[in-house]
Nucleic acid binder design. Sequence first.
DNA 1: TACACTGACTATATGACATACACTCCTTGA
DNA 2: TCAAGGAGTGTATGTCATATAGTCAGTGTA
Lengths: 245, 245
Amino acid sequence: MKEELPAGLGELWARLDEPEPEPRNRLTLSRVIGAAVELADTDGLDAVSMARVAERLGFTTMSLYRHVKSKNELLMLMLDRVAALPRTLDEPSDGWRPGLERWCHAQWEMLHAHPWIVHLPITGPPITPNQLAWTDRALHALHGTGLSEADKAGVVLLVASHMHTMARLSADLGSAASGESIAAYSALLGGLVDGRRFPALRAAIDAGAYDYPTDTPQDERRLDYQFGLARILDGVAVLIRATGE
Amino acid sequence: MKEELPAGLGELWARLDEPEPEPRNRLTLSRVIGAAVELADTDGLDAVSMARVAERLGFTTMSLYRHVKSKNELLMLMLDRVAALPRTLDEPSDGWRPGLERWCHAQWEMLHAHPWIVHLPITGPPITPNQLAWTDRALHALHGTGLSEADKAGVVLLVASHMHTMARLSADLGSAASGESIAAYSALLGGLVDGRRFPALRAAIDAGAYDYPTDTPQDERRLDYQFGLARILDGVAVLIRATGE
DNA sequence: TACACTGACTATATGACATACACTCCTTGA
DNA sequence: TCAAGGAGTGTATGTCATATAGTCAGTGTA
């Protein structure tokens, strides 16, 4: 959770673009990142320790530090590795709203392919090339709306935050695996909430507003981001209309 | 980040309500929580280790485990301790929107009084009494809008998530203390972003959309949650209007 | 051919951390 | 008076990131 704003960043990105020099049995930055990502994908972010990454590559723990300044840097590089912009986003959209919706869908796909992303102890703003690319695409989608640049930036932050939050919720619910604990939670909540202390909440629970569908297959049981996104975009539409007047 | 859904929860809440039995020099659950909260308030969440909490109380590390099952449980109790509903929210509001806005303001105050809240490694849904109370108040604010219970729940989740996200951003930016690194980031961003690769982002930066006001006093330099909230509530208004038809 | 240098990896060590486990008392109730 | 249990202690284990000091093979220079 400690944060040092990095110094030689450009240098780091340059190193990323270098081709693999000698494909011998040598350790490379790319291999380190790859192993770490694999670990996170299969066993979660907690499984990513310097020791385990090194072991998977057949080297000693400390060898990683030849290629990476700290574990924090490795985590940042993992994010960048995985956050490549999909082709889909290059096609032109008809209007800002479909554009942003497509952007969100792509973001959602990425966040679900690598659920550990939302658990990265990242503090501070995005600075990796791929992250900047995502931001650029979202801003681009708002081109022609008449919004000020500051408003565009605000909208992008809002939308991106929403996706991030929902993905995190979804990942947490999903990793409380097999749905059992979800059902358990529903029951727990139902039993815990006293109608006298919490009448509004009680009513919502009784109406089934907090039931998660436990019968749907594992993959579908993602939390839905659409509802919130629709509200947000409706609100953005209001702003755009007001700006145009 | 590992999650076990707790067993004897009701029992735990009951223990919270018990009056302090003997105010001698004994360790109590309440004192443990209090010391932990003080530590987090002054030195951040990372400073909260079982060892340091115990030291502050003049006991050994292991003594804490007599009152708390795990550090995770302690973190949950810290949150509950600090998340008491303020009186303000009891007064009636004229309409759902002012009601939600008041709710958000109160939430913002709380999150800023204890910035570590947003860094709690909480996975899974809220279950402490005070958290439920907050949810209940928010749902209550939407009473009379004609929304379905499920929609109300969706709106509350959306609004609460937004506050949480903005508080987190604000805390992170604030803890990169003294504003220096914020300015440093602005400069870094400005230098890093290539106008050919990221034209939309470049335009936004050049328009000052990503400048943080470094001249405002420390306390005011909080990230603003109002912009996003206004968009969200505008969107909710659209939904309410559509529902009423 | 000799040698020093360098870059890549290893070995070992440190200090923080959560927490298991086995105790030592002191208080309380019978 | 004594047994029992509760409260707190002491010690130990395993994991973690990472500092520091090697080791060793290959390379360029004399």
